[in-house]
C-alpha cells in the first residue's frame, strides 16, 4: 500500500506540473509530429504505411517519457524536494518511478493525438497488428533505458544536460528511422543492445529475443534506480557530484 501511495503521488504530481507548463506539452507533441513528417517524406503519393505509424507512436511515447523524466529529476533538485524525498521512508526511487509512469501516460496521449492527425494520410495498415506487438515490447525496454538514464542523473547532478545528445543517438539504433542493416557497419553491434521497432525484422523468434532484451533493460533500469536512490540516501553524493 505504501509503495502504491508513493508511486501514485509521484504520478499525480507529474501530471499537475505538466499541466502548469503547457509549452512542454506542446513541445512533446510537436516532436513526433515533426519527426513524423520527415519519416513520411515521399509518402504524398503512396501514403503513410504501418511501419511509419509504429515509428511515430514510438517517438511520441519514448521521446515524451525520456524528456519529461529527466525534467522531473531536475525539478525535484531545483525545488529542493529531492533531498527531502531522500530522507523519507519511500526514498527517491518510488516517487520518481511514479513520475516516469505519468510521463509515459502523457506520451501515449501525445501518440494518440499525433496518429489521429496523420490518419487522413494513411494508405495501408498492413503490418499494424504485428507493429503493435513490436511497439509494446520495445516500449517495455525503452522504459528500462529511461530508468537507467534517470538513475544516472540522480547520481550525477551535472549529467542532466547530457540527455539531449542521447535521444537522437539511441533513436538511431531503435529502428524507428532506418533498419539496422542500413547503419554504417561499425555502428551495427551497438544496435543489438537496444530493442527495435522495425516491423519488417519481426518474427516469432526475433520477437522473443526482443522481449528478453526489453525485460533485461527494464530489470536493469529498476535495479539502477533503486541503487541510485540508496546511494543518494546513504552518501549524499547525488547532491554534490
Amino acid at each position: 500500500m505504501r509503495v502504491l501511495s508513493a508511486l501514485g503521488a509521484g504520478a499525480v504530481l507529474h501530471l499537475r506540473v505538466s499541466a502548469l507548463t503547457p509549452m512542454a506539452v506542446v513541445s512533446s507533441s510537436l516532436t513526433p509530429v515533426g519527426m513524423g513528417l520527415l519519416l513520411c517524406a515521399g509518402a504524398a503519393d503512396r501514403g503513410v504505411a504501418g511501419q511509419q505509424l509504429v515509428s511515430i507512436a514510438f517517438i511520441a511515447v519514448w521521446g515524451t517519457m525520456l524528456v519529461q523524466s529527466v525534467i522531473a529529476v531536475v525539478q525535484e533538485r531545483n525545488w529542493g524536494t529531492m533531498a527531502m524525498l531522500a530522507t523519507t521512508p519511500s526514498g527517491i526511487a518510488l516517487p520518481l518511478l511514479g513520475r516516469v509512469f505519468a510521463a509515459a501516460v502523457h506520451g501515449l496521449l501525445s501518440a494518440a493525438v499525433v496518429l489521429l492527425v496523420l490518419l487522413p494520410l494513411v494508405s495501408t495498415t498492413d503490418v499494424l497488428g504485428l507493429g503493435l506487438v513490436t511497439l509494446v515490447i520495445a516500449l517495455v525496454g525503452y522504459a528500462g533505458v529511461t530508468l537507467a538514464i534517470v538513475s544516472w542523473i540522480v547520481r550525477h547532478r551535472y549529467a542532466s544536460g547530457g540527455v539531449n545528445g542521447l535521444f537522437e543517438l539511441i533513436l538511431l539504433f531503435s529502428g524507428a528511422f532506418v533498419a539496422m542493416s542500413a547503419l554504417p557497419a561499425g555502428l551495427r553491434p551497438v544496435g543489438y543492445l537496444f530493442p527495435s521497432v522495425r516491423v519488417a525484422d519481426a518474427s516469432a523468434g526475433t520477437l522473443a529475443v526482443q522481449l528478453l532484451v526489453s525485460v533485461a533493460w527494464l530489470a536493469a533500469g529498476l535495479l539502477l534506480l533503486t541503487g541510485a536512490s540508496n546511494s543518494v540516501r546513504k552518501t549524499g553524493k547525488g547532491f554534490l557530484q
Binding site: 550525477h156 551535472y158 549529467a159 547530457g162 545528445g165 542521447l166 543517438l169
Partner: peptide, 11 residues
C-alpha cells in the same frame, strides 16, 4: 563536469 557539453555539442 563537462558531460553536458560533450553531449550537446559533440554527440
Amino acid at each position: 563536469n563537462p558531460v553536458g557539453y560533450v553531449a550537446n555539442r559533440l554527440v
